[in-house]
Write a protein that binds this DNA or RNA. Structure first.
Length: 284
DNA sequence: AACCAGGTTATAA
DNA sequence: TTATAACCTGGT
């Protein structure tokens, strides 16, 4: 089926798909992005203020796609709010059109366990390996794609098997986390109604999930916009902008961001992350 | 050849 | 509470 959303601005597909929040979008030569969401293959292209989506799904439902791309939210207002922070103006201008996707909690959890101490290229490759070997095939226009495997499937693997996907020492974290989810020891989909602090505490019971990964899971799959994942880039850029380049502990930076940005922190993190990675030499 | 990269965990002061 | 080392992998 084909769907066209119009009047989507601010919206920047390139930054949204390649900005480090999702790992299963791939850019083609023609500028289209192909991704697998749940059991659907999506081919997406943006032309100015319209978004064309070609999907293998046969129903005409647009709500799930609008939710996934966060099209219900007024990003004009969010960008306006963030521009009131004078020091964020360059970042917000540069990344205008960034949106926080609404992704599946299970896939996001495993994806960000894999992301710890890892490069985006490796993360994407490992996730594709996992889907290809353990996911379900999806046929679309003569090509085969693969869904993300269920908790049950991953829970049944041995560490040596899973290491073939190149996830390295994270294999045991993934399997143990899968066991906890599959057994019902933790209900990751039921957490959303709790407070950010409470969800964080629960998520960090999962092996391989520390503060940063927990905040990514909440921000990208639970709409918890006060979550503020601090990775090396965010740490660097915060130290540069707010602390004269002095080294700060993660705890101090977390505290600072929470106080300064409140329930907009997650959006700030997105803009700062992409901007600092793209333009570090300008900031420094 | 050594070092680093989108952290977490275990251990010690 | 804060500091340090080890950890798979792939690239320079």
């Amino acid at each position: 089926m084909n769907i066209i959303f119009t009047d989507i601005l601010p919206f920047n597909l390139e930054i949204i798909a390649d900005g480090g929040q999702a790992f299963r979008w791939n850019r083609q030569e023609d500028g289209r992005y192909i991704g697998v969401i749940e059991n659907n293959v999506l081919k997406v292209i943006q032309n100015d203020d319209e978004l064309r989506i070609d999907s293998n799904a046969d129903n005409k439902q647009t709500e799930p796609l609008k939710k996934y791309f966060d099209l219900y939210r007024d990003y004009n207002q969010i960008e306006r709010e963030l521009l009131r922070y004078e020091e964020l103006i360059p970042a917000v201008r540069y990344c205008s059109g960034y949106r926080i996707l609404f992704q599946d909690t299970w896939e996001t959890t495993i994806s960000f366990i894999i992301s710890a101490n890892n490069h985006i290229r490796n993360i994407k490759k490992t996730i594709e390996n996992i889907c290809r070997i353990y996911g379900n095939p999806i046929e679309h226009k003569g090509e085969t794609y693969f869904s993300f495997p269920s908790p049950n499937v991953l829970a049944g693997l041995s560490e040596d098997e899973l290491r073939l996907t190149k996830c390295g020492y994270r294999a045991k974290y993934i399997i143990e986390t899968a066991k906890m989810v599959a057994s019902g020891k933790i209900d990751i989909y039921g957490l959303k109604k709790l407070s950010t602090a409470d969800i964080r505490k629960e998520l960090m019971m999962l092996p391989g999930v520390g503060r940063k990964v927990a905040d990514c899971i909440m921000l990208y799959s639970m709409r918890k916009f006060d979550a503020f994942p601090i990775d090396v880039w965010i740490k660097r850029v915060l130290e540069q902008i707010y602390f004269n380049g002095r080294k700060m502990s993660l705890a101090k930076l977390q505290n600072f961001a929470e106080k300064r940005f409140g329930d907009r922190a997650g959006f700030v993190q997105q803009y700062l992350f992409y901007y600092s990675r793209s333009c570090w030499s300008d900031i420094k």
